Computed example of a mutant assay.
Amino acid sequence: MRTLLDRLFAAAGYLAGLFLIGTLLAVLASIFGRVIPGFDLPGADAYAGYCTATAAFLALAPTLRRGEHIRVTLLLNHLPATAHRWLDVFCHCIAVFMAGALAWYSIRLVMQSHEFVDISTGLDATPLWIPQLGMAIGTSLFTLAFLMDLILLLSGKTLREASPDGEPAHIE
């Protein structure tokens, strides 16, 4: 199950990269639309924003799984091993709750936007539930990644493999 979830998180990371490329293409289209007569893509600025937001949310889970989120470990590293473990478990419980709440309200926002046929105010008139899907999926995967880390912690396993020089594989 862990391998399957790690593949899912990796796929979300690659998809986030594709949305970054989408941001680039939308910005270039907007620039060329201003420079080249007759070439216009209405809403290109809005699409760049949608792609950027989707990329950011989809990248949350794979970044967490790779241990690349910033963690303030000044206190954590000075605790005995048992206290370190339990504080880490406590923090992960709070993180699961907060990420879960964010996912819940993101999904709810998508459902309400779809139900009320909410569209963007720009020239593109995009149904807003479509770009909001990236946030809902990204936050749901983020919650799942935190839950996976919490389960690993509770089972007594370490979250990240150490690098060859003995340092943790994540930035602190």
Rank of each mutant, 00 (worst) to 15 (best):
I70V: 13
L4H: 07
L75R: 15
L133M: 14
A136N: 09
L141R: 06
V35M: 07
A125H: 15
L28P: 02
Q132S: 05
G22L: 12
L153P: 02
A11H: 02
P80A: 03
S113Q: 14
A56T: 05
A95F: 11
S155V: 03
L153R: 04
F39P: 10
W104V: 02
D118A: 09
L8T: 05
G122F: 02
S155W: 04
P42G: 12
G17F: 07
A48F: 04
H84L: 03
G67Q: 10
F57L: 09
H84Q: 14
D149I: 01
D45E: 10
I151C: 03
P127H: 05
I31S: 10
P62I: 00
V35E: 12
A169S: 15
Q112W: 11
N77T: 09
I130R: 11
T54H: 06
A145S: 08
L75E: 15
Q112G: 12
F57Y: 11
L60D: 04
C51M: 13
G122Q: 05
S155K: 10
A61R: 02
V117F: 15
P168R: 00
I21M: 14
E167T: 14
C93W: 05
P164A: 02
R85L: 06
A46D: 07
A59Q: 08
A83Y: 00
I31A: 14
A59G: 12
G13A: 02
I151N: 01
M135I: 15
M148G: 05
T3G: 13
E68G: 09
P164D: 11
S30T: 01
L75S: 13
V117I: 12
A103Q: 04
A162T: 00
A16C: 07
P37T: 01
F19R: 04
D165C: 11
D149L: 05
D149C: 10
E167Q: 13
A29P: 03
G67N: 04
S106N: 03
T126P: 09
V96W: 02
I137E: 05
